[in-house]
Nucleic acid binder design. Structure first.
Lengths: 173, 173
DNA sequence: TGGGCAAATGCAATAGTATATCAATGCACA
DNA sequence: TGTGCATTGATATACTATTGCATTTGCCCA
């Protein structure tokens, strides 16, 4: 399963053209399985919100989700509905909040409780997730050295994904 | 100057009781000097906003600043005024935006363009800044390995500062 | 099977954060 | 002294998130 996830792009950006239906399907299947194992309920709304988030690899704002959800449900969805679903999905590690964008993106490795770096491309807007334990150990070590007890990490790097970098190099060589 | 800054608490949390007037004075003096060197204008409003941010070591929301600014100026300040001042101060590296709090905190080392980790205490709300080049090199290395070109970093660690950690240990041993 | 409980959802209002736009003023410099 | 650009003023609005309470749903078990 971990390998399947990796094939779909975990740890790096997916190609701008790829079998995205497979990403979505995989994400939903993994979510179902995880929730089943944990004895929590992946309700219709939660599944719908998760699917909407996985409609692309670009972080989505809560109100983007709200708009799409409302249109899927006949125009009747309110902010709390979306935020509650997002809270649940975050608790289960199925989505990440992107602090620097006030947006949400699907987690590419929900099985492991990991501490990942988010890579955010300013070209295409896509996000990718990177798990490098050594980085977090280094961050924690230097914080601990000051007597600080670390409980949570937010690590978000902005820049250009490989595809956008190449395109930009071509345009302005 | 770097040493003076360090004495005032850079690189770690300041004591909960310390000579804070000195922090503020130092921050404003350094800001004046930096702006002079760079040929940019530290106007009244900008100086006022900077001083308000330095009224403590706890990140302040834009509307907290707005309220205080308005009361200092006879009730007449609007959001854009504050946000424009904040934009300027961020461009000059005099304040940092705290993404995970939607708030702003004074930069403890504005002279160097550094990439710092912010340490955010959930106990007292104070923030501290840590500069550890090795961490950022590690982060950048692992991102680069995927072909991503890093342009900006957001690294925010939440947890407990030494003082709050000690207090918590005492209460629940 | 249906009563009772907790979780989930619906719904209305409001709080909190940030930006767009255009007019007016101030400052630097020719 | 006038010209041009940066700064500020003022109004409106967009965007993001939460509170509080009513209602429904799913589930456990008597």
């Amino acid at each position: 399963m971990a390998e399947a996830a990796r094939e779909e792009g975990s740890g790096s950006f997916v190609a701008h053209a790829h079998d995205h239906a497979r990403c979505v399907r995989g994400a939903l299947e993994r979510a179902e399985e995880l929730c089943r194992q944990r004895g929590v309920r992946l309700t219709d709304i939660r599944r719908q919100v998760l699917a909407l988030i996985w409609s692309g690899h670009r972080p989505l704002g809560a109100y983007d989700i709200l708009t799409k959800l409302a249109s899927e449900r006949g125009g009747k969805a309110q902010p709390p509905t979306v935020y509650r679903a997002l809270d649940f999905l975050q608790e289960q590690g199925l989505v990440h909040r992107v602090q620097s964008l006030n947006a949400f993106v699907g987690c590419q490795l929900p099985e492991e409780t990991h501490r990942g770096q988010l890579l955010l491309c300013r070209g295409c807007g896509d996000a990718a997730e990177l798990v490098d334990g050594a980085c977090f150990e280094a961050l924690e070590r230097s914080a601990s050295a000051t007597g600080f007890k670390v409980e949570g990490f937010v690590v978000e790097l902005s820049g250009l994904c490989p595809a956008c970098l190449e395109r930009e190099d071509k345009e302005a060589p």
